[in-house]
Simulated assay, not measured.
Amino acid sequence: MTALEDRPEVRTPGEGGVPLTTEPRAPRATAGHVDSSAPAFTPDTDPLDVIRWALAAHPDLLMPSAFNLNGVVLLDLAARAGYRGEVVFVDTGFHFPETLATRDRLAARYPEMTFVTLHEGAHPEDGQTPPDLYASDPDACCAVRKVAPLQAYLREKAPSALLNARSRDQAATRADIPFVEAGSARVKINPLAHWTRERLEAYAREHDLPVNPLYWDGFLSVGCWTCTRAVRPGEDARAGRWAGKGKTECGLWAGENRL
């Protein structure tokens, strides 16, 4: 039996699953404003206003996504704000089937955007990495299967800014991200920086968004099935990512090779 076959069955609330009860997480009080070219946004600024500003300031804006709750909400907000660009997903070969199905549902829901899958059809035996690299060296596995493909694509496309779905209450490593984040290669736009998990869930319910069903079984942040577990009550949303491996980020948003 493979590790994928051995993972627990995932059930949505309607199938008998129990949504995880989470504690409210208040936004940080200080305004997130790092890039001097951006307006003086405040924590109460509507994400739609941030996205509209980004579209005007960066017409070549590009959106990477892993289609977690934050990403699904951002897609809907971006569509409402007029985003018609690319949504780029990296297929590491280790994604849950539910994640790939969520991608397909979103692509059908937002035909005005172009959904791009890098390494589409990748699988654990494709020879890109040793079969057990995710266990012995998860940083190296992420670097090869996730970070490198996206970095290569961004070098080709050369967007001046990225639209991404990170928020401050996801993890300690993201507790101070601003709405507009300066970078050496490109600006990073974080419209959801000050939204709590509860607000994201409420928005998803209100707009009937196709949230990954794994979320309702406690997978508050879904990555590769090899390195993701359900989150326990009271933990950060990303606590189930690389649990016990001394790692909290894949390398896209933190570290020497960050975007």
Rank of each mutant, 00 (worst) to 15 (best):
G244K: 14
L192P: 01
A230L: 06
F94N: 04
L55G: 05
D76H: 15
A193W: 03
L259R: 01
H119T: 13
G127R: 14
H207Y: 15
A239T: 03
F67D: 00
G32K: 07
Q151A: 15
T226Q: 13
L77D: 01
M113L: 15
R109A: 12
D44T: 11
P97F: 13
D208P: 02
R258W: 00
D132M: 14
P233H: 07
K247F: 08
R155W: 06
A165E: 03
P130L: 11
A66V: 08
A148N: 12
A81L: 06
R174T: 11
W253G: 04
V147T: 13
P178V: 11
L61K: 02
P210L: 05
G71N: 07
P131S: 11
A161V: 04
L106P: 02
W216L: 03
H119W: 10
S36A: 14
R84C: 02
P13F: 10
L77E: 00
A108Y: 03
V187C: 03
A239G: 09
R103F: 12
E256F: 09
A135P: 09
V10E: 06
P210N: 06
D46G: 10
R168A: 06
E256I: 12
V87D: 01
P8E: 05
N164A: 05
G218M: 01
K157C: 14
P191T: 09
R155A: 12
P64F: 12
G255E: 06
P43M: 09
P138N: 05
P159R: 11
A122E: 06
S65Q: 04
E235W: 08
Y83S: 02
